[in-house]
Design a protein around this nucleic acid. Structure first.
Lengths: 343, 343
DNA sequence: CGCTCCGCTGAAAGCGTCTTCATCGACCCG
DNA sequence: CGGGTCGATGAAGACGCTTTCAGCGGAGCG
């Protein structure tokens, strides 16, 4: 009974006694098909298990029903949340999601070089923490499809962003209010072959809040944790070994904060009694571990970016949309007042 | 200078004074093209920034250079690791990665119904924890493309699996060796509309190890944590409120274990002094939090599945490959001997 | 009753590439 | 020197669908 090969639109047309054009119209709910004809075609198509060949319809229509998502690296919490948020929206609209990692400079330039080849493969593009230079943005514009960025704001593309400086300042003020005067900072890479504004903005917000409160910002108390768990652990170990040990540490990501808490405890320090630690993200497991942190709605940002993108696909030529979402301080158990100084 | 529309193979052919067929052959390194001709075509194609239209070549060749990945839910650690592992391999081979979530029964049946439409969209499929019934497997076979499953073993498809029973038994024996006699179990959903063998297998391995050691397995000490952080927290709270409180808990995933540890500590219990907790996965942050757990190389499993799939795509008709990878017990700080009973 | 308008339908021309088949020389060998 | 072989190339037909355009008949209207 099962046909040897998949059935085509012509099979359906023949069986229904109509032309392929009518079948195409009927199945896509286009106007100008008699209700009776439409029903008959629908039934026959279902009987024959007909499904349009995606490549053929894409070639003919020029629409791919596919959205591309480019992120620095999959496997990290942030990217996985964005993917989850995007996938939910896309599958609800019948779109496919194509994911691509850009984890090396080589990868990155390859993507830029082949930007033109993306046209024809996707209807729109989501860039997660891509940090495009103006020159790169030019190449990306050659994709000829709408682009939405997450984490950075480029005038000519739509974007979904948070106020990194404000979030970092909230974390810093939280520590200051608790009485901390000597605060360490575990950053991500400030530059890796290209400008990466996120850690920069967070570090700036942190420094500004300290300055505003008259707290000394000692640059020696800054370490690069590479945005990884292991990096955060190594960084906190260095900070704890210093002569003037910080009483609190601000980590620019929760994953680094987890590493920092773990290592500090392993080394025999109590959190927050001996050292307070605050993160940034509000990772899924942050609450379980009582990590005080700056919440950002990553999953919702992925959904929002996707909705903006679909809108842009539907209305070509519309001006870019810039959406800023709010961050919020989550006070938990990893922060507390500093131990009375042994003066 | 930039052409208004992307250049086609005919543009290149015209500029090179050859036919489109020769251009097609030359650019794909097929034989029967004179070296000089090949070089000239390559240069001209590069000048014109020619890139073949994916949909057109896919339609003509029947190959999509795309692999589909279906997972229960993105945003969870397990799926994100698999995606990361798969993406690395695929991008190295010029393949695109299409991701699709199957988080509801509705979603699932839709996927199965449209299985045939996947043919033509992908060259192969990776199923993560899909748990196909024989009937579902039949439908998936209609995709007409190689399939590799991760987490389950279906005879007609290739697979990458771990020995869940063995892993769970390792965790159970670890607790027993520490002296625990009253051990709770936090499972995932044992069935959600379809058989889901993973929690079942782990629970069975756990029960078998207890039985082998002569330890009572009290079914009242089992709770469903839904594989989420919050579920693990709620489950452990219930267990701790019981009259005969377990001295140790085995969580079938690390994320549930994190929730359990966090909640237990919030409730004033010390880990492991008052309660030992062991997980399953070896999540990225498990080490930081000293979680004893059963390690499985999820990312490598994603890569392995992808390599098997690419192999199967390259050699159609080859018999399915079944790869089993090893698990390992990680002894950390969340487990210890039970407190001396207050008898 | 004739004309116009409109809804429904089919024929056919793409969409851009791949792939088969035929052609055409050049070269080799007996 | 003729037949055979082989490498290089072009012409043309898929691939399966979408979309434009024209046609056709019936309804509405004056």
């Amino acid at each position: 009974m099962t046909p040897r090969h998949r059935s085509t639109i012509d099979d359906v047309a023949k069986a229904a006694g109509v032309s392929a054009a009518t079948v195409s119209r009927a199945l896509r709910d286009l106007p100008n098909v008699a209700p009776a004809t439409r029903r008959r075609i629908a039934r026959i198509a279902s009987d024959l298990e007909y499904a349009p060949h995606p490549q053929a319809s894409r070639l003919a229509s020029g629409k791919t029903m596919t959205v591309g998502l480019v992120a620095p690296l999959f496997g990290l919490w942030y990217a996985s949340q964005v993917v989850a948020g995007a996938e939910t929206v896309l599958s609800g609209h019948g779109y496919d999601l194509l994911v691509h990692a850009v984890d090396t400079a080589d990868n990155r330039s390859r993507l830029l070089r082949h930007a033109a080849s993306l046209r024809g493969r996707i209807d729109g593009l989501i860039l997660v923490d891509f940090f495009a230079t103006p020159e790169h943005a030019d190449r990306l514009r050659q994709v000829g499809r709408p682009v939405v960025t997450i984490g950075e704001k480029i005038p000519s593309f739509s974007s979904v962003t948070i106020d990194n400086e404000r979030g970092a300042a909230m974390a810093a003020r939280h520590l200051i209010e608790l009485g901390h005067q000597c605060i360490g900072l575990i950053t991500g890479p400030l530059a890796h072959g290209h400008p990466s504004p996120v850690p920069g903005a967070r570090a700036a917000g942190f420094a500004a809040a300290l300055a505003a409160a008259g707290v000394v910002h000692d640059p020696h108390l800054t370490r690069d944790g590479g945005f990884t768990v292991a990096g955060g652990a190594a960084a906190v170990e260095q900070l704890l070994a210093m002569a003037v040990r910080p009483t609190a540490v601000f980590c620019l990501s929760d994953e680094m904060a987890f590493g920092a808490i773990g290592r500090a405890q392993q080394l025999g320090y109590r959190v927050p009694d001996d050292i307070s630690i605050v993160g940034f993200d509000d990772h899924d497991v942050a609450e379980s571990f009582g990590l005080s942190t700056v919440h950002q709605p990553v999953r919702a940002m992925g959904s929002a970016a996707t909705e903006i993108l679909l809108q842009a696909i539907a209305t070509p030529g519309a001006p870019p949309v810039h959406r800023a979402v709010e961050v919020a301080l989550m006070r938990r158990r990893s922060t507390g007042p500093p131990a009375p100084s042994p003066a």
